[in-house]
């Protein structure tokens, strides 16, 4: 656990209060209360269709909050459009279509930095973790392998200098070795940059490896909340997720 200041104890990185949301009239999230503490990693688990991605999309301003509020470090952000939320140092990595496959690797990264100098520094930095990035800046992102695309996504999230990072199912379809690499990078960078991380996962083992706490969503409500280090956490979660 990174050390936390008194200030951070008082003001959460992200706070949902009584949040309801959904698509049109279909309410997917119901009166949800959730706190992401400063500097922590919280994993959202749950079966498909239980509202995990919906929650991230609502926080990010893609879906309107039908009730309740979302606060980012104390400031209300619900009601703002996605670009205004992104500009407040929130990075969001959606589950599908998270990259521009027809833009090259460099352009995909260029979109989140201010100028060419910042891009060069950032590329050099993430190149330390993922050497293919500086080597293949002019290659179209869509032609990267599945694992490389996920690494590029993580790199893009990191170089945008986020205070809060929202990541939706980054391990989907990945080999265990790649998953391990992503966990390592996230750990190191979180210690360095101090961002708070909210991840949506189906892969329970990855979730528990990377998260300080977890929350299980069922039918748009939190069914279980606990620390990843708790004995029996994994069994309990799988119990929630099983057939």
């Amino acid at each position: 656990m990174p050390s936390v200041t008194l200030m951070a104890e008082v003001i959460p990185a992200l706070e949902c209060r009584g949040l309801s949301s959904g698509y049109g009239e279909a309410v997917v999230i119901r009166h949800l209360d959730l706190v992401l503490r400063q500097g922590e990693t919280l994993a959202l688990l749950g079966k498909n269709g239980m509202g995990k991605s919906t929650l991230l999309k609502t926080v990010m301003g893609y879906l309107p909050a039908l009730a309740g509020t979302v606060r980012l470090e104390g400031r209300t952000i619900s009601g703002l459009p996605p670009q205004r939320i992104a500009r407040q140092a929130v990075s969001y990595t959606p589950q599908d279509q998270a990259l521009f496959p027809d833009l090259n690797v460099g352009d995909n990264l260029r979109l989140v930095v201010d100028d060419e100098r910042a891009l060069r520094t950032a590329v050099a930095h993430v190149g330390g973790y993922f050497p293919f990035i500086p080597d293949r800046l002019t290659q179209k992102a869509g032609t990267l392998s599945g694992g490389e695309q996920k690494m590029l996504l993580l790199a893009r999230a990191l170089i945008s200098a986020p205070r809060v990072m929202l990541v939706d199912e980054i391990t989907e379809g990945l080999q265990p070795s790649v998953v391990t690499r992503l966990v390592e990078v996230l750990r190191v960078e979180q210690r360095r940059l101090g961002f708070s991380l909210l991840i949506v996962e189906q892969n329970v083992r990855f979730a528990l490896a990377v998260a300080d706490r977890y929350a299980v969503l069922k039918q748009g409500e939190i069914a279980d909340l606990g620390a990843s280090a708790d004995a029996g956490a994994e069994t309990r979660i799988i119990d929630h997720l099983r057939l």
């Binding site: 391990t171 379809g173 265990p176 996962e201 799988i238």
Partner: peptide
């Protein structure tokens, strides 16, 4: 499949 370990099917995706 549902616990997320997709590689168990011997699939070399990624």
């Amino acid at each position: 499949i549902y616990s997320g370990e997709t590689h168990a099917l011997g699939d070399a995706h990624g």
